[in-house]
Design a protein around this nucleic acid. Structure first.
Length: 312
DNA sequence: AAATGTTTATGGCCGG
DNA sequence: CCGGCCATAAACATTT
């Protein structure tokens, strides 16, 4: 029996679904988002099985990216030239996999509809974005240098970092990366309903920054009024006028056909809007949620504000 | 043109 | 058996 953590599958097909493989790839990089080609690369690097029949499985993988709500598309900024968008995990899909294992999913993640929660006017969304950016900036300025080293995902979380599910991401991608803080995917899931705290993760894996990063040479301009924290053009956010923009915003419309369901919350913790690109490997920002209404440990007990659901 | 994304269809597997 | 999840194929459309 091959051991996944050692990548000894050789030619055998790994026991992971495309969703799992894609989630691994996305989780493996500090930005928590990857272009399609990098997802391909990640999979092919680690699983020789996928070095053949690329047309077949890549078609399937693209199908999964588009079809599953747990993946969201994040457009490139103009200073990030390249083909295609970035793909990220939907913030609300953190508990997709049981116990941090990528072997099986819990429930199908489905995003819900929430037109009523969106800003009524595009200008509102723009204003909201600006506020988020300012909050984030001030939070970073206030806390950038002297933050409690809460060891990223262990902050306030009782979950001991010693247990690592054999199929947890850190054991899967550990071939190249060692996680200082002992970050387990299962640990992350226990936080904030799986909200990816990009800055903290990057702090936890500073050494990964230059090894797996797509764009290290693109400092984000926080002063820009055209782009949100995630590099999502405000214009693209507003045209739909159905989502709030402080988190990676899915380009694809939320399934409005689902009756009585809602997707995005009226309020999003400010720490969610921290920009991955704004982080520097040499000056890690351990910005905690200064302007956030809830600490990670609090969000443990509170239901996620993001109203997505695991349809079952 | 090739890469990327979207959508529909079909069939297998598995658990309730 | 039925429904959910998954893999695969294929026909597009869009973007670079």
């Amino acid at each position: 029996m091959p051991r996944p953590g050692r990548n000894t599958y050789s030619d055998q097909k790994p026991p992971y679904s495309y969703i799992s493989l894609t989630a691994m790839a996305i989780q493996s990089c500090p930005e928590k988002m990857l272009p399609l080609s990098e997802i391909y690369k990640f999979i092919m690097d680690r699983f020789p099985y996928y070095r053949e029949n690329t047309q077949r499985w890549q078609n399937s993988l693209r199908h999964n990216l588009s079809f599953n709500d747990c993946f969201i598309k994040i457009p490139r900024r103009p200073d990030q030239p390249g083909k295609g968008s970035f793909w990220a995990l939907h913030p609300g899909c953190g508990d997709m996999f049981e116990n941090g294992s990528f072997l099986r999913r819990r429930k199908r993640f489905k995003v819900l509809n929430a037109d009523s929660l969106a800003p009524s006017k595009p200008s509102d969304a723009a204003h909201y974005l600006q506020q988020q950016a300012k909050l984030r900036l001030s939070a970073l300025a206030a806390t950038g240098t002297h933050l409690p080293q809460m060891s990223s995902y262990n902050l306030g979380v009782s979950q001991p970092s010693t247990f690592k599910h054999p199929f947890a991401i850190e054991n899967i991608i550990a071939r190249e990366y060692k996680v200082p803080g002992g970050l387990a995917f299962s640990t992350m899931q226990s936080m904030s309903a799986g909200y990816p705290l990009h800055n903290q993760l990057t702090t936890a894996w500073p050494h990964m920054y230059n090894t797996n990063v797509i764009d290290t040479a693109a400092p984000i301009s926080m002063a820009s009024s055209d782009y949100s924290a995630y590099g999502v053009p405000i214009k693209s956010l507003c045209h739909g006028a159905q989502t709030l923009p402080a988190i990676p915003v899915p380009i694809k419309p939320t399934p409005a056909a689902v009756p009585g369901l809602s997707s995005l919350p009226p309020h999003i913790p400010a720490f969610l809007s921290n920009s991955p690109q704004s982080l520097s490997p040499t000056s890690p920002q351990t910005a905690t949620s200064q302007s956030s209404p809830a600490t990670p440990s609090e969000t443990l007990t509170n239901p996620p504000t993001l109203q997505s659901v695991a349809v079952h």
